[in-house]
């Protein structure tokens, strides 16, 4: 791989049609990279159960996306999934693990803890408030813990990012993919209304009562 990425641009650029070929090679490399992300087994608390065990087990099956080859050594892994709370004593170790991984390396922060400190953000003497204070993060997957589906969405996002992003000419460059935008002419209120209609028609939910209950609950929360 090293030979290809180091030498190929220099050889191909001068040849007529070389850049086109180079782009094709880029696509091939990115395709194979994105479909063989080997994660590092690194879990520090409850999210690890979800991300490592539930996603790897039969029902959700991480192998469908080519990311099931969990490696216990950072030198063989491409993907660092930060699953769990990072505390002050763990931070230097996390940094070391990241630096030991070979380029290109990707980082996913799963769960509120890895994103911002989560439930331990306030009044904690040791929780690091976000893994991105220590290492750069490519994809964030919110949740406490995230559902395996959410994790897969994050993984697919990362794959998209790899396919769109890097090229041999500019290694290490990341481009954020366009993920989801609301279709034209549609607002969040429309979606909310649609959901409410669905609930009242199909699930026999008394929407008026439910909305009133929700309002009461949030006002109580404010007092609390």
């Amino acid at each position: 791989m090293g030979v290809i990425t180091d030498k190929l641009p220099g050889v191909l650029e001068p040849v007529p049609g070389g850049s086109v070929l180079l782009t094709a090679v880029d696509q091939l490399i990115n395709w194979s990279r994105s479909n063989s992300l080997w994660p590092l087994t690194f879990g520090t608390s409850c999210c690890a159960i979800e991300v490592m065990m539930a996603t790897g087990a039969a029902r959700h099956d991480l192998a469908r996306f080519g990311a099931e080859v969990a490696r216990p050594s950072p030198r063989q892994a491409d993907l660092l999934v930060i699953a769990g709370t990072i505390v002050k004593r763990m931070a230097p170790r996390l940094r070391t693990l990241y630096e030991q991984m070979a380029e290109p390396r990707y980082v996913m922060a799963t769960g509120s803890c890895a994103i911002c400190g989560g439930p331990f953000m306030y009044h904690s003497y040791t929780t690091v408030r976000g893994a991105d204070e220590i290492i750069p993060v490519d994809v964030y997957v919110p949740g406490c813990p995230p559902r395996p589906e959410a994790f897969f969405y994050g993984l697919l996002t990362l794959q998209k990012m790899i396919k769109e992003g890097e090229s041999i000419r500019h290694p290490g460059e990341r481009r954020r993919p366009v993920l989801a935008a609301l279709p034209e002419g549609m607002t969040l209120d429309d979606i909310r209304k649609e959901m409410q209609d669905l609930l009242s028609h199909d699930a026999n939910v008394n929407m008026a009562a439910a909305v009133a209950e929700g309002a009461r609950y949030s006002s109580e929360l404010k007092d609390f």
Partner: peptide, 15 residues
């Protein structure tokens, strides 16, 4: 001793 209720340090955030 950080789990004492009156423990405070510079790192902690107040809600």
């Amino acid at each position: 001793f950080p789990l004492r209720k009156d423990y405070e340090d510079d790192f902690m955030l107040e809600r």
